[in-house]
Nucleic acid binder design. Structure first.
Length: 683
DNA sequence: AATGCCTGCCC
DNA sequence: ATTCTGC
DNA sequence: GCAGAATGGGCAGGCATT
């Protein structure tokens, strides 16, 4: 039976003995299920009703299916929205508001200031505006001329003393150099823990000596070290904090908070995303947007470009000693002038290590002490255990306190799609947490306490089984019923609802995970995008196309950026570099929004796997076949291998793509939908 | 007012 | 989402 | 085994530009 890949088989078949301790011993694989499993559909049918009143709208329901865990998410979402709108109406209770106005004035002033300049330097990113005297002095805030070369600052020092070992004195503004040196040290270290330690030492000094600069420091760290695409700053507005539980954290981002440091004191929010940041750097350094842009492309790190740009400028007029604050303020001002900076978002984008560094710094050198502080190193004289506990607590606070964004609330009348919530589990009932009870209990309680309502509120379809065959059948059935797959869980043993252990005890089963199952296509590489972060120097993604024999066109079908080993990537880059052409061929069909950095002569054919095919607003594959204006694209595309044996013309054709699309159960089941399209066609 | 870019979110 | 890679 | 860091399609909402 080839149903499961080895990987799956391992997790699937390892019946976990009911153990009470936390070790995860597994007894070797048995060849059949030894215990009853409850299996729920991954996404259940949602009956679409295009009229009628609804009180819930799940975003995941837009495509007519709802993820297995949607019920809960839906609730959370709705709740959050409500809260968000509440705070909309009464944001005044939040201190941040004040600052917003004070900064607001500042902004207004600059806006006026710049709007005239703006006329002479068109904001269009493509152009390189002639800069007249945009040599803004990045340091106009700091006083004095060049000091003697600064002291060596070494936050890497053993038993670091936040006061003695700092290169500045209490009350001083933090010199930018200190931060630069800190970052330099960090970059030369590979161990994460070490990085955290170094950075936290710097933070400790800032906390003790110049707490006002903490925020600026954090921002500048981000700017420097975060991957470019995440390099945006938002000084939060805590009015957007919500008090309800959790928000799913994006995998790579943490959202911190406003305590215990008074981060919200700064009040305003300033959303700088990449493009804005590029303009910012251009303006602040007197370089053209195009220049900066190309530099970013080269280095892949906007922070480095900023640094270098600033460096150049410094050569030109030898400014005074930079302070962290001055740099930050300037950036802030300019970004704000940039126009689109003030956004409604309210999040900090952080990386874990900064959070941890911050937590470590807080734990070691508690903030908000009078100077000189009584506690410089809280780790001293305390059992390591105790300190660790305190640190963990702090880290937890930092990690779990976060800001959510305002969401535009849709009025109920705007909601067009009837949504049905499918319950599949119960974590909490009448004041009692059920998280530690086995699934069988939770499910029983769920069934006892909730009354399903047809087409609104139902139980997720599930089966209990011990045999592989039934699992297989149920998987087939679920796919036919427009679901993505199954969730498989144990009913009794280790059947608690624990997120952390989820990956071990819950198994997600989707068709395209299985080897030899799922959609696979052979596509032509039309172009590529320069890699960023760890992919600097190679291509990071590619534009793929299918071949339309009728029009003899290559039609874009998706971009692709995963599935390659580092080695693959290097090789592809090497091979494709030889085939770069200056302009796309006239017979390449693609959307301008996906314009690659480099175009290639169509030659390479890659085998690519995906989960689904979808109608796309931007891709052009098989355009005109199933829809007039929309092409077809791939969902979750990943690279499998190069098809050396195929030439570009032998790639998957538009016709085949259309066929694959139409053959999807999901599409077939839509039934009526196609009639509608035909009617439209008719007119 | 319409269009298009940018961002953040959801998979 | 998916995938690969260090730790 | 896990966390981190690369990357995907598609959508909604907000701004900017036309």
């Amino acid at each position: 039976m080839k149903l499961l890949t080895t990987q799956h088989r391992r997790s699937f078949f390892c019946a976990k003995p009911a153990i009470t301790n936390t070790s995860h011993t597994t007894n070797g694989g048995t060849s059949s299920l030894t215990e009853d499993r409850s299996i729920t559909r991954l996404g259940c049918n949602i009956v679409k009703v295009f009229h009628g009143d609804v009180s819930l709208c799940s975003p995941s329901a837009r495509d007519g299916s709802c993820g297995e865990d949607s019920p809960i998410k839906t609730c959370v979402l709705t709740k959050r929205r409500r809260i968000a709108s509440d705070s909309d109406e009464e944001p005044d209770k939040v201190p941040a508001k004040n600052c917003e106005t004070s900064v607001g004035k500042k902004l207004a002033k600059f806006k006026a200031d710049v709007s005239e300049r703006a006329s002479s330097s068109p904001p269009a990113p493509r152009q390189s505006p002639k800069k007249e005297a945009v040599t803004e002095d990045t340091t106009d805030k700091s006083q004095g001329k060049v000091k003697q070369s600064c002291l060596e600052y070494n936050p890497d020092k053993g038993s670091y003393d936040p006061i003695q070992d700092a290169s500045w004195r209490h009350g001083d503004k933090v010199p930018y150099l200190a931060l630069a040196q800190t970052l330099e040290k960090i970059e030369n270290v590979s161990a994460r823990l070490k990085m955290i330690e170094i950075l936290s030492n710097y933070f400790r000094s800032v906390i003790v000596l110049s707490p006002d600069d903490l925020l600026a420091s954090i921002y500048l760290c981000l700017n420097k070290l975060a991957p470019a695409y995440e390099a945006y700053v938002v000084l939060t507005d805590s009015s957007q904090r919500t008090s309800d539980g959790f928000k799913k954290l994006p995998d790579q981002i943490m959202y911190p908070y406003a305590e215990p440091y008074d981060l919200q004191k700064t009040g305003i929010e300033l959303g700088i995303a990449e493009t804005t940041l590029i303009r910012t750097i251009a303006q602040s350094t007197g370089r053209s947007v195009a220049q900066v842009k190309s530099d970013v492309a080269d280095t892949g790190d906007i922070g480095i470009v900023a640094e270098q740009s600033r460096g150049n400028q410094r050569m030109m007029f030898q400014p005074a000693r930079l302070t962290v604050r001055a740099v930050f303020d300037k950036l802030l001002e300019i970004a704000t002038l940039g126009g689109k900076a003030v956004s409604t978002t309210g999040t900090y984008s952080f990386y874990l290590r900064w959070l941890l560094a911050l937590a470590l710094a807080c734990a070691t050198t508690p903030p908000e002490q009078s100077y000189p502080p009584s506690v410089l190193n809280a780790a001293k004289g305390v059992p390591a255990e105790t300190f660790k506990t305190r640190l963990d607590e702090l880290a937890l606070i930092i990690k779990t306190t976060y800001c959510t964004r305002k969401r535009k609330d849709a009025t109920e009348s705007d909601i067009k799609v009837q949504v049905c919530v499918y319950m599949f589990d119960l974590m909490y009932l009448n004041g009692e947490s059920l998280v530690r009870r086995p699934l069988s209990d939770r499910r029983r309680l769920l069934r006892e306490h909730f009354v399903p309502v047809e087409e609104e509120f139902q139980l997720a379809i599930s089966i209990d089984t011990t045999t592989m065959e039934e699992v297989q059948d149920f998987l087939e059935e679920s796919v036919k019923g427009n679901c993505e797959g199954l969730m498989v869980k144990t009913l009794e043993a280790d059947a608690t609802y624990e997120i952390a252990k989820r990956s071990r005890n819950w198994l997600k089963l989707k068709k395209d995970y299985l080897e030899g199952v799922g959609d696979t296509l052979d596509l032509v590489v039309l172009g590529a995008y320069l890699g960023r972060g760890k992919r600097v120097g190679t291509y990071g993604g590619f534009l793929l196309a299918c071949y339309d024999q009728d029009s003899e066109e290559y039609q874009s079908i998706c971009k692709i950026g995963t599935g390659f080993t580092d080695d693959d990537l290097a090789k592809h880059t090497q091979v494709l570099k030889e085939r770069v052409i200056p302009k796309p061929r006239p017979y390449y069909r693609y959307d301008l929004s996906h314009e690659p950095d480099h175009w290639f002569d169509a030659s390479q054919v890659w085998e690519v796997k995906c989960a689904d095919l979808s109608l796309s607003p931007v891709h052009r594959a098989a355009i005109g076949i199933v829809d007039h204006e929309k092409g077809i694209s791939l969902r979750f595309p990943r690279f499998l291998r190069v098809r050396e044996d195929k030439s570009a013309e032998e790639a998957t054709t538009a016709t085949q793509v259309a066929e694959m699309y139409t053959n999807q159960d999901q599409v077939k089941n839509q039934g009526l939908g196609s009639t509608k399209v035909m009617e439209e066609d008719f007119y």
